[in-house]
Design a protein around this nucleic acid. Structure first.
Lengths: 357, 357
DNA sequence: GCGCACATTTGAACCGGTTCAAGAAACAGT
DNA sequence: ACTGTTTCTTGAACCGGTTCAAATGTGCGC
């Protein structure tokens, strides 16, 4: 046996040992059918003898020009891919798509002490999927330099027009609100994910000053849906959170300390919705009998809790399929493709309590 | 602007356009300091002009022989990395380690319709970390062919002796059991993760017939710990699960339907422990006042629930650090390094109920 | 004007393969 | 024996860079 390090066996060496040309040796590994059996066996024997591990990928790669792998990049640290629920779900979908296509998958963090863009510059991939959270535009800028195909997911639309697939946040939110309205709810509160005004409920004007387009879109959708029942935006309590349990609980306390507490809550993410349900349970309020909760995102955890979460489902699989296809097969993507979001009704919403009708 | 596809600009072209040799052009990108400023600027201008995206990675790679990336492989589908809790936590730790070292991270699934080992053979990495679940030995076999450094994580010890880092399951389990004993518990049940005997409690002899070394190690550790209080293995109810809510709930129902139900539960994974707590709550049994629960693994979710889970903590970060260092820095790893597991005491365990003393 | 140290630049070899036109060998047909 | 096919095999070009010894140029002291 030979160790890798001490063993720079090249195709050339194998060819020489087998007494054939390098071209023939190459064929043994890549198109064995066109090599005469006797020769093939000789070469294979030589390879085995020398401990040749097969053609070097880099050599082959250089010729082929294709890596057959895609990269997924974010401006967050690498751990984001495994810790953030949205990213994780999105990645599972992308991974499934890569599995189908037999492509490899690299994950890339654009955070690097020395050179922020270094990891993006040096990732060995045929194209990049950008998971845009906050730093979308910067990420896109770095990626463009690379002159590689890329698709932005979750990009906020105000930014550069780059190939990207987005979701119709506004319409999804509208459906969620109309669902509650149809169930008879009239006192409905919103749990935000804007990371500000943590201490009190915000006015509609204040809410719209948030820098996050996603938040603005969703809240506008909520308002539009509620408007169908004649509920004005100003009558909808809006409590913001930073998506952590603590601020969600605080927000819930605030909302339910009101004179006429809400009978339903529209949460801007499933994570927040789940924390909200947790709080309600801790207060011995039943879901959905006393209070209905609608989430947003459709992460798997939401389907698995008791009660299961009614939510606006992001089409993760579809987003992933489009993004991967666009990179691997060069399928064009309109600069701002937007997918619709279906509402998934599960156990966390029910008719408004009778006493409230 | 030029598009990537139509734009095969090579370093050579840039050099020619700038009127310098290719060597100099190369230096402009790699060691700018040794090139005279005027020349450097000329080359940079030419590059910009031609839309040159910087030296091709494959070309450079070929010369350097290093990819500066590690791969993590399993015999599961790619989605495993983002869906399985253990894998996810392990990956977060590995990712953090790669971040530190500035290395890339590729994930690889050894499941491929045509050729099972293909993905492992063709991953562009400097080394592989193997996440061994059930298929450990097969995975190792495929990897060895690649003649690349690798480390097996979570490998069961009975198998091939390959470089790997394992954990001392037995000792961790022992600590968990002794913790409960020290709190005064005497009626203690075990929740298994062996996927068999789902319908009844198993005898010690039956338990030890499981093919999973992890399960055998942990259960032996539990018995050893309980033995310090004079509790015989035969007196410890053992209910198996397949790690899903349904079988856990069924197992719990079985255990608590006994004449003298347990006051504490040793769960072989945090996931199972969390389902168990959920069941207990649904039955209005308080944790830890009425029943104590100890998990195993130390996944983040366990720290975040109410009450927080007492558990045997796997040293994820340490495992990751060793594995990554071994690959990136060529640090040797003894064929079977085994790390100790600390017990983390949190809110889900407490003194045995007085009525039981 | 000459020699020398120093700063740049060049040219060619090399990294490890793949590919393809052209050559060689084996065989069939006439 | 001669030509036409078919089946393999060969040699050389090429993929896109990096590197290093050698060549060139530059400035300075005497």
């Amino acid at each position: 046996m030979f160790m890798t390090q001490d063993n720079p066996v090249r195709l050339r060496d194998v060819a020489r040992a087998a007494g054939v040309s390098q071209g023939t040796a190459s064929n043994v590994f890549n198109r064995p059918d066109i090599v005469r059996q006797e020769v093939r066996e000789r070469v294979e024997a030589a390879a085995r003898e020398l401990g040749y591990a097969g053609p070097s990928l880099t050599g082959r790669l250089l010729r082929a020009g294709k890596v057959n792998a895609i990269g997924v990049a974010t401006a967050e640290p690498l751990t984001y891919f495994f810790e953030d629920q949205w990213a994780r779900t999105m990645m599972a979908a992308i991974a499934a798509e890569c599995d189908k296509q037999g492509a490899g998958l690299s994950i890339v963090s654009a955070m690097n002490r020395e050179r922020p863009a270094w990891n993006i510059q040096s990732a060995l991939v045929d194209g990049l999927i950008l998971l845009c959270a906050e730093e979308g535009p910067a990420l896109i800028g770095q990626t463009e330099k690379r002159e590689l195909p890329f698709v932005a997911l979750g990009l906020e639309e105000s930014t550069v027009d780059a190939p990207g697939v987005g979701i119709d946040n506004r319409d999804g939110a509208r459906q969620a609100a109309e669902h509650l309205v149809a169930l008879g709810h009239r006192r409905i509160a919103i749990l935000g994910i804007g990371e500000s005004w943590n201490d009190r409920c915000a006015t509609p004007e204040e809410v719209m000053t948030t820098p996050y387009l996603t938040v603005r879109d969703r809240v506008e959708g909520y308002w539009a849906g509620l408007a169908t029942a004649g509920i004005a935006a100003g009558d909808v309590p809006y409590a913001d959170t930073d998506s952590e349990r603590e601020t969600v609980w605080a927000a819930m306390s605030r909302l339910f300390a009101m004179e006429r507490p809400p009978t339903a809550v529209l949460a801007m993410s499933d994570r927040v919705a789940l924390f909200a349900i947790e709080w309600l349970k801790s207060q011995s309020r039943r879901v959905p009998e006393d209070v209905s909760v609608v989430g947003f995102d459709g992460i798997p955890e939401g389907a698995d809790t008791l009660p299961a979460l009614t939510t606006v489902q992001q089409p993760f699989q579809e987003l992933a399929a489009r993004a991967v296809a666009s990179i691997l097969n060069g399928e064009e993507i309109a600069a701002r493709t937007v997918l619709p979001l279906p509402l998934v009704v599960r156990g966390s919403t029910g008719p408004a309590p009778k006493s409230e009708l």
